[in-house]
């Protein structure tokens, strides 16, 4: 069978070619939303949080 040519058609299922599992979609969008939150919460220019401040706080305790 070595030199039989590959048939591209055989590689991909036809009925499910356009499917996106719902669980995966939730994951995809969920992570994007979380990313927006995290970016806002931990960017010094936006929220004022900074590594150095967090350190000072932890020492003061």
């Amino acid at each position: 069978m070595t030199d039989d040519l590959d048939n591209i058609e055989d590689f991909e299922a036809k009925e499910t070619a356009g499917k996106l599992p719902i669980g995966w979609l939730i994951l995809f969008w969920g992570l994007i939303i979380w990313g927006v939150y995290y970016f806002i919460a931990y960017t010094p220019g936006i929220s004022g949080w900074s590594q150095a401040k967090a350190y000072e706080e932890s020492v003061r305790k």
Partner: peptide
């Protein structure tokens, strides 16, 4: 700089998808 770290973490978590 903190912002580069934060941005990296955002995309890092996204990479799961």
């Amino acid at each position: 700089p903190d912002w580069i770290q934060t941005l990296a973490i955002v995309f890092t978590i996204f990479l799961i998808a």
